[in-house]
Nucleic acid binder design. Structure first.
Lengths: 198, 198
DNA sequence: TGGGCATGCTACCCGGCGGTAGGCTTTCAA
DNA sequence: TTGAAAGCCTACCGCCGGGTAGCATGCCCA
C-alpha cells in the first residue's frame, strides 16, 4: 500500500515531466514548472528523484527497453523469417507511437543524460540493431529476403520507424495497429520479401 | 574585401558553433566556449550575431534550404519519374550526410529556435514534404510506382534518409555517393518501382 | 490526549551564463 | 603627426534555476 502510493506519485511526476519536456524541451522546462503543474512544490520532486538529470533518464530508459523488447518478441515468434520481421517491425512501430513523447525526448535530449545512463541505453540500442541485422541476415540465408547490405538495410528500417515520432499525430486517420501494419509492409518491400496478406 | 573578411569571420564562428553544439548540445555550450575555441572573446561574437538563438537559426536554416533544393532539383530533372525520385533521394541523402552536424542540431534543438525562425523553417519543410508526395503521386499515376498511401510513403522515405544523421560515420566504408545510391535504391523498392541499373 | 514520525512546504543560496558598457589599440587619411 | 573611427577586449551586471536546510502540518499509535 505504502509502496503503491509512492509508485503512483512517481508516475505522476514522470507523466507531467514528459508532457512538459516534450512541449518545451528539457532546458526550457524548470522543476518549478513541473511542480506547479502537479500542484506541489519543487522539493517534493526531490523526494522521488535525485536530480533533474535523473528524472530525464527515468523517462527515457524504460521506453528504449520497450522498443528492444518489441523487436525481440517479434523475432522470437514462430513462423517464417518474413512473418517474424513483419511482427517485429509492427511491434516496434506501436511502441514508438505509443511512447512518442518519451522517444522524442530521448533523441532530442541525449546530450543531457549522465554518462552512466547513456552507456546503459547505448547497450540496449546495440542489442536492438543486432537483433534487426540478424533477422535480415537470416532472411537472406533462407532466400526470403534480397538485400545487398544487411547493416544498412537495418539502419534504414530502424530510421523509417523511429522517425515517426516527428510526424505522427495521435488524432490522425490511422490507428496504431494500422500504422504498425503499414510500416511492416513497407519494411518487407525494402528487403525484397514477398508480401504478407493483411 | 571588407565584406569578404566579415563573411569569413562569420563563417568561422558558425563552423566552431556547429562543432560544439553538435558535441555538447546547444545549452551545454556557452558563448565563452565558442569564443575560446576561436581564440577571441564573447563580445566578438555579438558583432556578427544578435544573440545565441540567432546563431542557432543561422546554422540551421541554410541546411534545410539545401535539403529542399536537393529534392526540388532531383524532381525537376529530365527523365522518368523513377529516375527523378532516385536522384531526388540520392541528392537529399548527400546533403544530410554532408551537413550531418547541422541537421542533428536542428532536430535536437528545434525547441530553442525563435518563433519566427521556426516558422520559416516549417514552411521549407512543408514544401519538402509536398515535393516528395507529389513525386510519388505522379509515379503512381504513371503506373511506375505502386503505393497505397503516398503521404505515408513520403514520410517513411524522408525518415529513412533523415535518420542517417544519427548513425553515419564520415570515416565509414561507404562514400557519400555510394550512400546516396544505396538510399535511392531502397527508396525505389519501397514504392515498388523497377530498379535502376547502377 | 500527546508524542513522534512522515510528508511536503517556505525560504533561501549560489553559481553559471547571456548580454552589455565603455575603454584601449591599431589603422588609415589628411 | 594627429585625429578619428573601427575593432576587439576587460570587466561587469542581473537573472534564472537547480538544489538544500529547516520548519509546519497532520496522521498514527499508545
Amino acid at each position: 500500500m505504502r509502496d503503491e502510493i509512492l509508485a503512483y506519485k512517481r508516475e505522476r511526476i514522470l507523466e507531467e515531466a514528459v508532457k512538459l519536456f516534450y512541449a518545451r524541451g528539457f532546458n526550457g522546462t524548470t522543476l518549478d514548472d513541473i511542480a506547479a503543474e502537479l500542484g506541489v512544490t519543487k522539493p517534493f520532486i526531490y523526494t522521488h528523484f535525485r536530480s533533474k538529470v535523473d528524472l530525464l533518464a527515468a523517462l527515457c530508459k524504460p521506453t528504449i527497453e520497450m522498443s528492444l523488447a518489441a523487436v525481440l518478441q517479434g523475432s522470437a515468434m514462430p513462423g517464417t523469417v518474413t512473418e517474424r520481421l513483419y511482427h517485429a517491425i509492427a511491434g516496434f512501430t506501436k511502441v514508438v507511437l505509443q511512447r512518442q513523447a518519451n522517444i522524442a525526448i530521448y533523441f532530442r535530449e541525449e546530450k543531457n543524460l549522465s554518462k552512466t545512463a547513456l552507456a546503459d541505453i547505448n547497450e540496449l540500442r546495440k542489442q536492438f540493431d543486432h537483433t534487426l541485422s540478424d533477422l535480415l541476415r537470416e532472411g537472406v540465408e533462407a532466400k526470403e529476403f534480397d538485400v545487398p547490405d544487411e547493416r544498412l538495410a537495418a539502419l534504414a528500417i530502424g530510421g523509417m520507424i523511429s522517425w515517426a515520432y516527428t510526424w505522427h499525430r495521435p488524432a490522425g486517420r490511422l490507428t496504431l495497429d494500422d500504422m504498425g501494419k503499414e510500416m511492416g509492409h513497407l519494411a518487407l518491400r525494402m528487403v525484397g520479401a514477398r508480401a504478407i496478406p493483411s
